[in-house]
Amino acid sequence: MTESLDAVERTALLTAALRAAESRRPDRLYHDPFAEALAGGIGPELLAEVRAATFPKDAERTLPSTPDYNAIRTRFFDDYLQEAARDPETTQIVLAPAGMDSRAYRLGWPDRIRYFEVDRPAVVDFKKSRLGDARPRVDHRTVAVDLTSPDWESDLEAAGYDPARPSTWLLEGLLYYIAEEDTHRILERVGAITAPGSRIAADIVNSAALTLPHMRGLLDVFEGWGCPWLFGTEEPEALFDTYGFTAEAVQPGEPGADYGRWPDPVPPRTERDVRRVFFVHGRRR
């Protein structure tokens, strides 16, 4: 079924392969028992390409460590969603896109939670085929729709989402694959269907990460797959503020986003022309 997935959709298999590899580590930051199946046969091949570019045999590493980054990102958003779920006011969680994520299956959730996974039909179908008889541990609603479609909000509401109630959204592994205008449009649309007090979280790179010469090794891998990185920002807080979210951004390696795993120095925000990735999280005003 992987033939039905396009280049961007296949990056979900890379994420699953990274999570499977992390789950085999004795010092793992989480355990994802579904990741190996969700990665399929292609996920490990994609991971091998990323590893070869990131950790060259005869040269010093200049690229960010994708395995460590992904481990920290997954754990950071695990903790973020679980913290949101402990809030009695939280009744709706939306993963958009959901990709090969298995949090609905591997983490515990309060009975009051409706857990929505939004992604393209091909991704939803592939995921179902890999999960087999696995059952989610939450009231799980799948919404098979493209986030660039003109009416995905109506599909989400038809699945039981209530825009008048506070919700928690996670946009993981999305914003750097879409053009700047599409990023703005998605944030605008999410802002329009979230009630005050709703939470949002996302990961995003800075604009320098798209152009710095020493990033070319990793950028070339994704471009070669047909899914180049298209958007980044030096001011993620301002980006989210535009659409009604008061947000803060933390970099891997900073307090609360390290877990003892980030291998590189963390440059201060005042330093220019350095690669960065941000975990953004905030609230709807």
Rank of each mutant, 00 (worst) to 15 (best):
His184Phe: 06
Ala98Pro: 01
Asp155Lys: 09
Val266Cys: 11
Glu180Gln: 11
His281Gln: 14
Thr66Lys: 11
Leu46Cys: 09
Ala104Val: 08
Thr74Glu: 15
Trp109Leu: 07
Pro121Leu: 06
Asp151Cys: 00
Pro263Phe: 15
Glu234Trp: 13
Ala59Ile: 03
Ser129His: 12
Thr91Trp: 02
Leu156Trp: 02
Glu180Thr: 07
Leu107Gly: 01
Leu18Pro: 00
Ala159Pro: 01
Tyr115Glu: 04
Trp152Ser: 03
Glu248Tyr: 00
Val138Tyr: 10
Gly191Pro: 02
Tyr259Lys: 00
Tyr30Ile: 04
Glu60Phe: 13
Asp258Lys: 13
Ile204Met: 03
Glu9Asp: 13
Tyr177Asp: 04
Pro252Val: 10
Asp146Leu: 02
Ala247Tyr: 06
Leu18Ile: 00
Pro121Ser: 04
Pro136Trp: 14
Gly224Tyr: 08
Pro263Lys: 14
Tyr80Met: 07
Asp139Gln: 14
Gly191Thr: 05
Gly191Asp: 07
Gly217Ala: 13
Ala96Met: 15
Pro67Ala: 11
Gly282Ser: 05
Ala85Phe: 10
Ala144Gly: 09
Asp203Trp: 04
Glu188Tyr: 14
Glu254Pro: 11
Leu187Phe: 03
Leu107Glu: 09
His214Met: 14
Leu230Cys: 11
Gly217Leu: 00
Leu218Thr: 04
Thr62Met: 13
Phe77Val: 01
Ala53Met: 00
Thr168Tyr: 03
Glu117His: 06
Tyr161Asp: 02
Ala192His: 05
Tyr30Leu: 06
Thr91Val: 12
Ser207Val: 05
Phe245Gly: 09
Ser65Trp: 08
Val205Pro: 01
Gly260Cys: 12
Trp262Phe: 00
Phe34Trp: 12
Phe278Pro: 02
Glu180Asp: 09
Asp32Gly: 03
Gly197His: 07
Arg130Lys: 15
Glu49Asn: 12
Glu117Thr: 01
Arg276Trp: 08
Ala85Trp: 08
Gly253Leu: 02
Arg275Asp: 14
Arg120Val: 08
Pro166Ser: 07
Val123Ala: 13
